[in-house]
């Protein structure tokens, strides 16, 4: 009886892989897997060459992905995690759940260069103030002009306690003003119409015409130019430089398909994947694309200087800076 069972097991072990393709599970955020997002095209392209099935599990955003991993630990079904940003990588690394990516990073082209052994970038963008050109004729030319400008011209920003762009603005203000950031926030608070829990609420208020400015990305105008054929919404170029957001992916150490996962990351910085990114995720590609980007991308603000705190700095200072922000804004 026992022998029969083990024979059967052997038999199934031998035939099952021939019928069921291995499944690569990718944890990502939900706008990545939306019908119009990069997800569907990425899945199709990678499945065509890997002989595997790509399964997306989509969560609200990078923070939600990281929390999910902390809950699941080594039991996670994830092989790949795609959609953290550099503000989260230190915390993510500290979970010890990630394996080295082992990819050749010489083709990665993000501002300020790349050297992380665990995480590999797939796109990036700079944060920026987007303004309505029908309402603002002289947009601020620097962060300082934004801070000290006319309080009647309002901006909607996001809360650093709940949103990624909100944290981005907090870090940008820190990069430019250093320890004087709380004072700058006090001045800026007069121009702030409201602080929303997420990007969607802020952008919704902006497009409803509630405020002539909103905090978003340099790439936002590309969406309006390409999909809505309008030049109305533009990014303001700031002379100090812009804060950078780099989105990354990593391989789970607990993955049962390490070779497949490595192939996916290699594929991620290939032209095939990178071609998909600009007009689906509305971010800048992190490596070469096969053709030049659409014309609208050429019109975007291209900052000469990029600010970026190291992931470790962000991890250790975020709490203090956020509480400082709260104190100076609440007055």
């Amino acid at each position: 009886m026992l022998r029969l069972a083990s024979l059967l097991t052997l038999f199934f072990a031998a035939i099952v892989p021939a019928y069921a393709a291995p499944v690569l599970t990718v944890y990502t955020y939900e706008s990545f897997t939306a019908d119009w997002g990069p997800g569907p095209a990425v899945k199709k392209a990678f499945e065509a060459k890997c002989g595997c099935e790509v399964r997306f599990v989509s969560l609200a955003d990078g923070v939600a992905i990281l929390n999910r991993l902390k809950m699941e630990g080594k039991n996670s079904e994830a092989d790949i995690v795609l959609g953290l940003d550099t503000n989260l990588t230190a915390e993510a690394r500290n979970t010890n759940l990630f394996a080295p990516h082992g990819a050749d990073i010489s083709t990665v082209t993000v501002p300020n260069g790349w050297s992380d052994p665990n995480f590999l970038p797939f796109d990036f963008a700079h944060f920026a103030v987007i303004y309505d050109s029908e309402k603002i004729k002289n947009p601020p030319k620097s962060l300082d002009e934004l801070v000290n400008g006319n309080p009647a011209e309002k901006i909607v920003i996001q809360d650093p306690r709940t949103s990624t762009p909100g944290l981005g603005l907090l870090l940008w203000m820190r990069s430019v003003y250093g320890d004087k950031a709380p004072d700058a926030w006090k001045k800026l608070s007069k121009r702030i119409l409201t602080v929303t829990p997420g990007w969607s609420e802020a952008y919704g208020l902006f497009t409803k015409g509630e405020a002539p400015m909103v905090f978003s990305y340099t790439t936002s105008p590309a969406y309006h130019m390409i999909e809505e054929k309008t030049d109305r919404y533009q990014a303001a170029a700031f002379s100090e430089g812009h804060y950078l957001q780099i989105e990354v992916a990593g391989i789970m150490a607990s993955s049962k398909q390490p070779a497949l996962a490595k192939d996916f990351l290699k594929f991620m910085i290939s032209t095939e994947f990178q071609d998909i990114i600009p007009t689906t995720n509305w971010m800048m590609p992190a490596a070469k694309t096969s053709a030049p980007l659409p014309e609208a991308f050429g019109k975007l603000v291209n900052p000469s200087k990029s600010f970026l705190f190291t992931p470790e700095e962000v991890a250790s200072k975020r709490k203090v800076w956020t509480e400082e922000w709260q104190a100076s804004m609440a007055q």
Partner: peptide, 15 residues
């Protein structure tokens, strides 16, 4: 209430 308080609250004074 969460979204309402944050979005219409105007800033972290409404926490």
């Amino acid at each position: 209430s969460f979204t309402i308080v944050l979005t219409l609250g105007g800033g972290p004074a409404a926490t």
